[in-house]
């Protein structure tokens, strides 16, 4: 019973950073129509922002996290401007270019920090007990930050003019541009937010995961599973799927092992793909 409860608390932590990553990926897909393969590396860059600013240069942790969000957001803008915009009519080309970008980010991280695990000391030492389960402040911090950020994003998308523009572009880019919505502007903001969310997830979890330049691989696999299970186009779906997947993965890891958990996750994604083989593009397909 204790173990079950503790595992549930651990899963909540996993769900919160996975939701940040997946929501970012869905934002990018929604507006750009591109599956960003470099999303795991954006997470990695966010983590290394904390390695550099907090662990090496001893800036305050919070400041390093904020810097991670903004810096990775700008990396996203660079990606939009240099790759996704010129390849707007060629989604497969965009995906492949993002694979190229992934390699570049990885190599730059190796140059900057070496291949080995970066060590980040915890920013707080405390922990709380919730009905017998232990939750470190460090993890609690991730959960709180994720909830705050996602709530802020939700409010922003519902209330602001940009939210409407974003939905319009995601539904029909051509019609949106006829209504005077600037596709470039919308794409830039979406890319900043999408990348920034991946970056902040990496920054927040850096003290907990010991980043390496190659950490992006497991992150992107996780993110793919979540967005496919969540229905690719939907932000709410991504959050729900993140919670679902985090619980499945954490429980299977605890009671079996991590590799089995990964296999289960991938099989889950394949199952969803088999049942709903076309996701968003269903209209083109036979029903």
């Amino acid at each position: 019973m204790d173990l079950l409860w503790q595992t549930a608390v651990n899963a909540t932590y996993a769900a919160s950073y996975m939701a940040l990553i997946a929501v970012g990926l869905v934002m990018i897909f929604g507006v750009m129509g591109v599956i960003n393969f470099a999303h795991g590396e954006l997470y990695m860059v966010g983590a290394y922002c904390v390695v550099f600013l907090y662990a090496q240069e001893t800036f305050p942790f919070l400041l390093a996290v904020a810097a991670g969000l903004v810096f990775v957001g700008f990396v996203g803008i660079v990606m939009e401007r240099t790759m996704f915009r010129p390849l707007r009519d060629n989604p497969l080309g965009g995906l492949i270019a993002s694979i190229g970008f992934l390699l570049i980010l990885q190599t730059l991280a190796v140059f900057g920090f070496g291949r080995r695990m970066g060590h980040v000391p915890p920013s707080t030492q405390g922990k709380i007990e919730i009905f017998g389960a232990i939750l470190t402040y460090q993890r609690l911090f991730v959960i709180v930050a994720a909830i705050l950020l996602l709530a802020a994003l939700w409010a922003f998308l519902k209330r602001s003019k940009f939210g409407r523009a974003l939905r319009a572009c995601a539904q029909d880019a051509e019609a949106a541009s006829l209504q005077g919505i600037s596709m470039n502007q919308t794409a830039r903001v979406a890319m900043f937010i999408g990348a920034g969310l991946a970056g902040v997830a990496g920054a927040l979890t850096a003290p907990l995961v010991s980043p390496t330049p190659y950490i992006g691989h497991s992150i992107i696999v996780t993110a793919f599973i979540i967005i496919i299970v969540g229905g690719v186009g939907s932000l709410e779906g991504a959050v729900i799927a993140a919670v679902l997947y985090a619980f499945v993965h954490t429980f299977v890891t605890t009671f079996f092992d991590g590799v089995i958990a990964n296999i289960v996750g991938l099989a889950l994604m394949l199952a969803v793909l088999i049942v709903r083989p076309t996701g968003l593009f269903g209209a083109r397909e036979r029903a």
């Binding site: 394949l270 088999i274 593009f281």
Partner: peptide, 25 residues
């Protein structure tokens, strides 16, 4: 081959990863 385009790409990725994880496990 129930999938196309992106979905095939990601599906083939998932299938390949599963095989690889089986070798690993």
């Amino acid at each position: 081959f129930r999938m196309k385009g992106f979905y095939f790409l990601i599906g083939s990725f998932a299938a390949g990863e599963i095989i690889r994880l089986i070798w690993k496990r």
